[in-house]
Design a protein around this nucleic acid. Structure first.
Length: 477
RNA sequence: GGCACCAUGGCCGAGAGGUUAGGCUAAGGUCUGCAAAACCUUAUACAGUAGUUCGAAUCUACUUGGUGUCUCCA
């Protein structure tokens, strides 16, 4: 196994959004990989779109673990937001209690979706001191200026001394379609705040030598990634909507604070968005769907009340991460079959009778090759699922004795399925005790109904059918 | 305008160089206490043009159309 892992760990290709091309992944420090992913802003519950990003990076994390890399994975929590509407009238303890509850709910959802815990999940408000220090550095280097007790980053100076703002990640044309009204009298319209003067109503604020307030959004991520991973690390990830301006600003700040040209991370990975009715699913548009509502059957996707959360997981990864997903219940419903087909492979494989032959008709090496190559090609999960389904077909043929397989090859086949389906895709079979009880009740009702039908008591048998038709479909033939 | 993604039947959707999966829908049938479901049969598609190739839905170039993003966002 070691040989196989070593063979494929040097062949990972990543679409690096920093350069807009696919590149061979070469870690900065041999076997050590440092990865930072922008976590959620905790002010509303996380929806399917948020989950998509976190699940995708969970798969990268799982895969790198599988390849026996030594990996440090950090995902932050932005636990302060203007939209929280906490004001001075409210008690600080209520705020802090609410925040804790919200974070626990976030963890609960990720746990249901079978995400592994990152190595550390720093909360922005725990690192204010470090952020202020970084702001001080920026001011000292004269890249930050004070305007009405807020601190802004001087883009004009940056463009002069480093490289052009807006060209690093997004390559945006900053002359186009931009509101040129400069309300705040900033030196440049692209100057962004690294410290915000407090509003009278804000409950939370910190003291500095230039006044009370809160750090800007971007400085938090720069500071935490620097603190936990150093000034230059391997992978920085997040949703594509963070590409600009958030990540652009993170890079610029880091280049100034550390006085380098590293652009913070070697590889930048951005996941595409999830749309619904061709509009972006977002908290602000209020068109979002919560995973918990699907799991609890509030959208009634099938006749079974509860939906296995891992079906949502599979739904979100079966489209390549750089394509956008247009959410539809229909497709989610179809994923149920795909899910059970995939997991059924483990039951099917037990039915294979091995043959006492020296070489099987199955090319195990080729199967390994296909699976590893698909995930190595910019984490092509749809292709991986396609290849896993191919294995499914092979297993069918083995069961039907069309193909013959020996013991050692069957063992290898079992192994690769376990690696990819369970370890990397993160799917698993779950036993739901509640649903088993419901099943028992329904089965008993069905028995009674059948007895009535034999007696041709159709009035009551139909009544029973109506009652239980909410849970199952009855096929009398 | 920049960047990214997409284009497959009436609708949804797989495909990853080698006879266009599958599902929904429609029509006809089998079955049946009624209903639903299931099963069988039938129907229709690779946006356009050029190129690479023995062979292209798939690779390349261009064109057309669509979506997202460039404002708080995963």
């Amino acid at each position: 196994m070691k040989e196989i892992i070593n063979k494929y760990k040097n062949k990972i290709y990543i679409f690096n959004t920093l350069k807009n091309k696919k590149e061979l992944f070469i870690p900065i420090n041999n076997n050590l990989i440092k990865m930072y992913v922008c976590g959620p802003s905790i002010y509303k519950k996380i929806h399917l779109g948020n989950c998509r990003t976190f699940i995708f990076f969970d798969i990268i994390y799982r895969y790198l673990l599988h390849l026996k890399f030594d990996i440090r994975y950090i995902r932050n929590l932005t636990d302060y937001n203007f939209k929280l509407n906490y004001n001075v009238d409210k008690n600080y303890y209520i705020y802090s209690y609410d925040m804790k509850k919200k974070i626990l709910k976030f963890y609960k959802i990720l746990q249901l979706l079978n995400l592994l815990k990152p190595n550390f999940e720093p909360r922005v408000t725990n690192y204010i001191y470090e952020q202020i220090n970084n702001i001080k550095k920026i001011i000292k280097l004269k890249y930050g200026y004070n305007l009405n007790k807020s601190i802004y980053f001087n883009i004009y100076k940056y463009n002069k001394n480093f490289r052009e703002y807006g060209k690093i990640l997004n390559n945006i044309d900053i002359s186009y379609n931009r509101n040129k009204n400069n309300y705040y009298k900033k030196k440049n319209i692209y100057d962004f705040s690294i410290w915000k003067n407090y509003n009278y109503n804000d409950l939370i604020r910190w003291n500095t030598e230039w006044g009370k307030g809160i750090p800007g959004w971007h400085i938090g991520c720069t500071t935490m990634s620097n603190k936990f991973l150093g000034e230059y690390f391997d992978i920085h990830g997040g949703g594509i909507d963070l590409k600009f301006p958030h990540h652009e600003c993170e890079i610029i700040q880091s280049n100034i604070i550390n006085n380098n040209n590293n652009n913070l991370a070697k590889y930048w990975i951005h996941t595409n968005i999830l749309t619904i009715n061709n509009k972006k699913m977002s908290k602000s548009l209020n068109n979002y769907i919560l995973p918990y509502d699907i799991i609890k059957g509030r959208y009634r996707i099938t006749d079974n009340i509860n939906i296995n959360p891992l079906i949502i997981r599979l739904y979100l990864i079966q489209t390549h991460y750089r394509n956008n997903i247009n959410f539809s219940y229909n497709n989610l419903r179809k994923t149920i079959n795909i899910y059970y087909n995939l997991l059924n492979i483990f039951n099917k494989i037990k039915r294979i009778k091995t043959q006492n032959i020296t070489s099987s008709y199955i090319n195990i090496l080729e199967i390994y090759e296909n699976c590893y190559n698909s995930i190595n090609d910019d984490f092509n999960i749809p292709l991986l699922i396609y290849n896993l389904n191919k294995i499914n077909n092979i297993i069918d043929e083995c069961i039907n004795n069309v193909l013959q397989i020996n013991k050692s090859d069957l063992y290898k086949l079992n192994k690769i399925l376990k690696y990819f389906i369970i370890d990397i895709l993160g799917l698993k079979k779950e036993k739901n005790k509640k649903s088993i009880n419901i099943k028992k009740i329904i089965n008993n009702l069905l028995k009674i109904r059948n007895e009535m039908r034999i007696k041709k008591d159709y009035i009551y048998s139909d009544k029973i059918r109506d009652i239980i038709s909410d849970y199952i479909i009855i096929n009398d033939n």
